[in-house]
């Protein structure tokens, strides 16, 4: 199977993927370094997290990523109605993720684990909050895809691929954040 090599989406978007990954990596490094300084306190605060919920969130987001990748496949095959359904699925999964996230925050805050209660929680709310902001921007981006699909005149495969790249980036960051906040000991 030989295919021509092509950049997925707009080349310049990859600058964002790389640059924003590095910015997030710098936040992660600060967290890991801090964590090593106060290991015991971090472990204690970390035990308040609900791992199964985190795993459900991760699977929701991974599935949304799969759905938007399927959407792009359908767009390439010019099956726009089916592509629309995949975008809706992506939005639904993203909303479900955000709902879980909100429920998790509410539960933690209710239990007294707030932004200011411990250093671990400071990092937790900061990283998940920054991720949530990226996710919310992602909904705007999904809206752009939907708009593009609905209107044959303005339909640009490249724009759709660029937008899906953004959505995957939201997923990329979550995969790291999840491992670092929930699993790392």
């Amino acid at each position: 199977m030989t295919e021509t090599e092509r950049v997925p989406g707009e080349g310049d978007m990859w600058f964002f993927v790389v640059f924003e990954s590095l910015v997030f990596t710098s936040y992660f490094c600060v967290y890991l370094y801090d964590r090593a300084q106060h290991e015991h306190a971090f472990l204690k605060a970390q035990s308040a997290l609900n791992l199964p919920l985190g795993i459900v969130e991760t699977i929701l987001l991974l599935t949304s990523s799969w759905a938007i990748a399927r959407c792009v496949q359908e767009v390439r095959a010019a099956r726009y109605r089916s592509a629309q359904r995949f975008v809706l699925a992506t939005v639904g999964l993203g909303v479900a993720f955000f709902g879980c996230k909100l429920a998790e925050w509410v539960r933690l805050i209710g239990d007294g684990h707030t932004f200011t209660s411990s250093e671990f929680m400071q990092h937790f709310f900061f990283l998940t909050g920054m991720h949530a902001i990226h996710l919310l921007i992602g909904f705007v981006v999904l809206g752009v895809i939907r708009y593009q699909l609905a209107d044959p005149q303005h339909r640009s495969h490249q724009t759709i691929e660029t937008c899906s790249t953004y959505w995957h980036t939201v997923d990329l960051f979550w995969v790291l954040i999840f491992a670092l906040l929930y699993i790392v000991r």
């Binding site: 707009e10 310049d12 978007m13 600058f15 964002f16 640059f19 924003e20 910015v23 932004f115 900061f126 920054m130 902001i133 990226h134 921007i137």
Partner: peptide, 20 residues
């Protein structure tokens, strides 16, 4: 260049970080 458009987004997102 369009990558600079995306750099604006990165810059905007780091402005959020100062609020704490």
């Amino acid at each position: 260049p369009r990558w600079f458009g995306y750099l604006n987004l990165c810059n905007a997102l780091t402005e959020v970080v100062i609020a704490p």
